[in-house]
Design a protein around this nucleic acid. Structure first.
Lengths: 324, 324
DNA sequence: AAGCTGGCTGAACATATGTGCAAGGAGCGG
DNA sequence: CCGCTCCTTGCACATATGTTCAGCCAGCTT
C-alpha cells in the first residue's frame, strides 16, 4: 500500500479511475470494489457516477448497421451528409425529443472536438439543451467561439448565451470567446462600422478558422417557433418581411430560403451571424434537429450545404426521407 | 454456427443496438426501454448483455494519469515499454491475478488489432485465459497466426492450441493459421527439414509480417511453473540443461537468459517458436504477465527487447520497480 | 399429427445499484 | 476554542438490474 500523493491527480479522481477499471474492465461488483478500496459500497457508486460524468469512462456504440442506419444511409445517399438518427418513441413530446437528441449529441461531441481545435457555437434552445449535458473531455489550446450575438432591446443576451458557451468551455477546458453584440443591429451601417473594430475582426478571423461548427436550426413559421422568434429579437415588420422573402429558416440568425439562398434578405444585413461562406469553411458542420416542424428549415440548410453531420430524431428523419 | 449478418441485420441485433443507444446514450432505464421496444424488462436486460458481450458497446477508460500511472511512468522511463498496470488486491491468488489481467487485456485488445492486420499468438495458460474473454470486433482481411507448435509426445496439442486460436479468430472474424507441429522436435535436423517445406515457409513468412504479437512468459524455475514446463513437453535432461545454461524464461518456447541472449541454448535449435529477430520485426509486441514469480523471466524478456506493450498486475509491477 | 428439441419469453425472485439523510470531520473566521 | 459552513461518509431504504424457471412456439423427425 503506497500512499505517495503525487502532484498530478487528486486521490478522489485516482480512486474513481481505479474503481472504473475494476468495474468496467474486470466486472467486479461495487461491493467487491468497495472492499478493495477500503470504503463503502455507496461511495463506490458515487465514484463511478463521477467517473462517468467527468468523462473518465467513455462509452461508445459501435454501429455496424443498425435499425436507424437504414435511414442514415438513405440520408447520406440523398444529401451527402453523415446522419446520426436518434431513436425516440413516436409518442414523445417535442421537449422530449429535443432533450434526447441533445443528450446523444452531448455524449458524442468529444469525438469531434480535440486539442488545438476551434469550435464555433450558436445559441438557442437546442444548443442550450446540449450544453447542459456535454461530457467533459480534457483538451489543450482549444477554443470555443460564439457564432452570433445574442443581445436584443431588453437584454444584452450575455447571461443566456455566455452560460451556454461557458458550459462547453468548462467541459473541454477550452478558451471561450464571447461575441458581445446584439443578435441584430438596428442599422446595417452600425454593423459595418463594428466589423471594422479590431476586437471584432479578431473574432471574425477566429470564426474563419473553425474546425467544427455546432448549431441548431431556426424555423420561423412552424408551430413551435424557435428561441429567436419568440425572444423579442424581431419586430413584427421584420417577421412580415421574412415571410414575403420566402425565408424558411435560419442558422445562427442568418436567414435562408428553401433553395438555400441568402441574398436579398434585408435582415441578414443587420444580423451578426457568420456569412454562410465563412461557415462552410469549417470542415465539420454539425447540425442538430429535433421535431418535424423544422423540416422546411432543414431542407433549406441542406440546399445551402451548411451541414456535414446531422443529428436528428427518428421521427424527423423518417419525415425527411418520406417527404422528398 | 453460421454468421449470416451481411446486408440485413437480424432483428435481435438491431434491437440490441437500439437498446444500447437508449441505455448508454440516453440514460433511459431498462423499464422504459422495454416499453419502447414492446417487450419485457428482462429481455432488455438480456439484449444489453448481448450488446456488451458482442462488442456492440465499447467501454473505454480514458486514463489521464491514474493511480497506476505512476508505476506505468516508472516502467516506461526505465524500460522504454508502454505498461498497463492492472489493479489487483494484494491478497489475490495467482489464479485470480491471471484472470483479472487476462480480462483487462481481452477488453482492450481490440484497440490494437484492426482490419488488414496479422497478429501472432502464442499459447499457454495466459493466452488461454485471455482467449476466453476477448471482446469481439469485426475486422476484414485480418489474420491470426500461431507462433509456435504445441504438440508433444502424448498429444498433437491441436485441441488445446487450436481452441485458443479459434477463439481469437472468432472474435475478430480473422482467418486463423495454425501451426501443426510439436513444440519441440526431437532432432534439430528434422526442424531444418521441415522449415524447407513450402507450407511452413508460408507460415513463417506470415510471422515475419506480423503487426501485433501477443504472448505470455514462461518461467521454468519459479514456484508456479508454466504450461510448457508442466505439460510433458520437456524431458528432465532438457530441464537440467536449461538450468546449466542460465535460462530464466521463454517466449513461445524460445528460451533466453537474464541478459536476453538466446545463443548456445541447445533446446532452441529444436524449438518451433520464432527467432527473436523475427519477433522483434512486429511493431507491437504485447506481453502479458501476472504474478511476481515471473519477474526473472520478465527481466530477461525486457533485456531482449521483446516487449513494446506490457500488461502486468499491480503486485508484479511494484516488484518490478522496487526490485531493480 | 404427435412428439421432440432448442431457443425465446415474461413473471417472480435474488442481487446489485442509487439516494436521502443524519452524523462526523476539516477548514476558517470570529 | 467556539461555532459556522461545506463536504464527505455509511446506513437504510428505494429502485433498478440480473437470473431462474416454467411455459410457449417454431421447426424438425417419426
Amino acid at each position: 500500500m503506497t500512499l505517495p500523493n503525487d502532484l498530478t491527480l487528486s486521490d478522489r479522481t485516482s480512486d474513481a479511475l481505479t474503481a472504473a477499471h475494476l468495474y468496467y474492465m474486470q466486472d467486479l461488483t461495487m461491493d467487491a470494489i468497495a472492499h478493495e478500496l477500503h470504503t463503502s459500497r455507496s461511495s463506490v457508486s458515487r465514484l463511478l457516477s463521477q467517473a462517468r460524468a467527468s468523462g473518465l469512462v467513455d462509452i461508445q456504440i459501435r454501429s455496424p448497421l443498425d435499425a436507424t442506419s437504414n435511414l442514415e444511409k438513405v440520408i447520406f445517399d440523398r444529401y451527402h451528409v453523415t446522419a446520426h438518427v436518434v431513436p425516440v418513441p413516436d409518442h414523445a413530446s417535442d421537449v422530449d425529443r429535443l432533450d434526447r437528441v441533445a443528450l446523444s449529441v452531448a455524449r458524442i461531441l468529444g469525438q469531434y472536438f480535440d486539442s488545438n481545435m476551434t469550435m464555433g457555437i450558436a445559441w438557442g434552445s437546442t444548443l442550450n439543451a446540449i450544453s447542459r449535458h456535454v461530457t467533459p473531455k480534457r483538451t489543450h489550446n482549444s477554443q470555443i467561439v460564439q457564432l452570433n450575438g445574442a443581445g436584443n432591446m431588453r437584454t444584452t443576451g450575455l447571461d443566456y448565451a455566455s452560460e451556454i458557451l461557458r458550459r462547453f468551455g468548462d467541459a473541454f477546458g477550452a478558451h471561450v470567446e464571447q461575441f458581445p453584440v446584439p443578435a441584430f443591429f438596428d442599422d446595417p451601417a452600425t454593423r459595418q462600422a463594428f466589423w471594422r473594430e479590431r476586437g471584432v475582426i479578431r473574432l471574425l478571423q477566429m470564426q474563419g478558422r473553425m474546425d467544427v461548427a455546432l448549431f441548431g436550426l431556426g424555423s420561423p413559421f412552424s408551430d413551435v417557433p424557435s428561441h429567436v422568434y419568440a425572444g423579442g429579437y424581431l419586430e413584427s415588420e421584420d417577421f412580415d418581411a421574412l415571410g414575403r422573402g420566402g425565408v424558411v429558416g435560419d442558422v445562427a440568425t442568418v436567414f435562408f430560403r428553401a433553395d438555400g439562398s441568402t441574398d436579398g434578405i434585408p435582415l441578414n444585413e443587420r444580423s451578426t451571424g457568420p456569412d454562410f461562406a465563412v461557415l462552410r469553411r469549417a470542415p465539420r458542420r454539425i447540425c442538430v434537429v429535433s421535431g418535424s416542424s423544422k423540416l422546411a428549415s432543414l431542407h433549406g440548410a441542406l440546399s445551402a450545404r451548411l451541414i456535414t453531420d446531422l443529428f436528428i430524431d427518428e421521427g424527423a428523419a423518417h419525415a425527411l426521407c418520406d417527404g422528398a
